[in-house]
């Protein structure tokens, strides 16, 4: 006799199925409506390739460069109490809530040649607006909360008694961080890195404000859609989604091996 599913499992399976279908259907529709020759053309298109490479390396660089500050900030939030901690937490979540075009405008105020950072960079011969550095800044601005919040959760989950024990055994605070805290929070930090990288790579709103060119793939898809219509934009989108999928599978496999 086949065991009967209980009513709550059945109801939740149906509701969950609808949510899942909502996520899968558009992607599946997009792939199924694109012919293989169209996808092949997009894959061999130099502009598409260039945009994908640019999106990948800028997102990666943005993740690792900002991670140098984001991971210590996450540790501070997890382990220390300080005045204004709630405000700092709210500020970190702000990029998740504001429109990304507004984030782009905000970034322009400091990255443009009239802004503080833009002027300093210009004096040093670095072009922020309309350059890879600007793209990285836009990607980092909107995706940093993912790395900070995930790492913070990871650090909070590390039992503080283990850190105390390590200090009692003679480890300095820096040594405790690198030999106990980080190895135990590694999974959450990597998850944050993957999320931040993914969110940064696919960023459109903030990036287009700061740098239309050099062109990243999300901007290219938008450009082709505006100039030539859905038929030309769709294969590029399919190729980009495929690349994203491959990259994330690889990152997850690497992260799983480290566990």
């Amino acid at each position: 006799m086949i065991p009967r599913a209980d009513s709550i499992s059945l109801a939740f399976t149906m509701l969950g199925g609808v949510a899942l279908l909502f996520l899968v259907a558009p992607l599946l529709g997009m792939v199924l409506q694109s012919s293989i020759p169209e996808i092949k053309v997009a894959m061999y298109d130099q502009e598409v390739r260039g945009s994908i490479v640019l999106s990948l390396w800028t997102a990666m660089a943005a993740t690792f460069i900002s991670g140098i500050g984001a991971v210590p900030l996450a540790w501070l939030l997890a382990r220390k109490d300080f005045p204004g901690k709630r405000v700092v937490s709210a500020v970190i979540d702000l990029p998740l809530m504001i429109p990304h075009s507004a984030a782009g405008i905000a970034l322009l105020t400091i990255l443009s040649r009239h802004g503080l950072l833009g002027r300093l960079a210009h004096d040093a011969g670095i072009r922020l607006v309309g350059g890879p550095a600007g793209i990285m800044a836009a990607m980092a601005f909107v995706s940093l909360p993912f790395l900070i919040n995930s790492s913070r959760t990871g650090f909070e989950a590390v039992d503080a008694r283990l850190e105390k024990t390590a200090m009692n055994l003679g480890a300095s605070p820096v040594s405790v961080f690198f030999t106990v805290t980080l190895p135990l929070a590694w999974r959450a930090v990597v998850s944050g890195i993957v999320l931040m990288f993914g969110r940064g790579m696919s960023e459109f709103g903030a990036v287009i404000m700061v740098a239309y060119h050099p062109i990243t793939t999300p901007v290219l898809i938008y450009e082709r859609f505006g100039a030539y219509g859905l038929k030309w934009a769709r294969p590029v989108a399919v190729v980009f989604v495929g690349v994203c999928l491959v990259v994330f599978v690889i990152l997850r496999v690497i992260a799983d091996k480290r566990r």
Binding site: D159, R161, L162, K164, T165, A166
Partner: peptide, 9 residues
């Protein structure tokens, strides 16, 4: 110092 509970790394 042995804290209360399991403190092995």
């Amino acid at each position: 110092y042995l804290c209360q509970g399991d403190t092995l790394f």
